[in-house]
């Protein structure tokens, strides 16, 4: 598997990372090197092998249905570049 220049631009766009045309060949090379490295895994025959999610048997931790968090609007918006009345403000996005 390998990516072409158009795919690199598309991935960058989906991730909202600004990539100039000059940077594309370099990124394409890096991504393809990574993909080639990972590709080696496909040499292993994993037919009938269950995907492993943990090296030790573990169960997902669950939480009781109680409200014990929130009511910290000041903290939530503290790092935001722009706020008003505890709303985050972002450039206008309308459908």
């Amino acid at each position: 598997m390998s990516v072409d220049a158009a795919t690199v631009r598309r991935i960058a766009r989906l991730a909202r990372i600004a990539v100039t045309d000059d940077e594309v060949p370099h990124l394409q090379g890096e991504l393809n090197a990574m993909l080639a490295f990972v590709e080696q895994l496909s040499e292993v025959d994993v037919d009938g092998v269950e995907p492993m999610t943990s090296v030790t048997p573990m169960e997902m931790k669950k939480r009781a249905d109680v409200v014990n968090d929130g009511e910290i609007a000041d903290d939530i918006v503290r790092n935001a570049p722009a706020t008003d009345d505890h709303f985050f403000l972002v450039p206008k996005v309308v459908e």
């Binding site: 939480r63 249905d65 109680v66 409200v67 014990n68 968090d69 929130g70 009511e71 910290i72 609007a73 903290d75 939530i76 918006v77 009345d85 505890h86 709303f87 985050f88």
Partner: peptide, 25 residues
């Protein structure tokens, strides 16, 4: 439910802006 799917913040409708929000949310 009383609290959210993956956090302990309230699910109550309405509320002041960003009041029912945890650091997870």
């Amino acid at each position: 439910s009383n609290s959210k799917l993956f956090s302990g913040a309230s699910t109550e409708f309405g509320g002041e802006p960003n009041s029912h929000v945890s650091l997870v949310d």
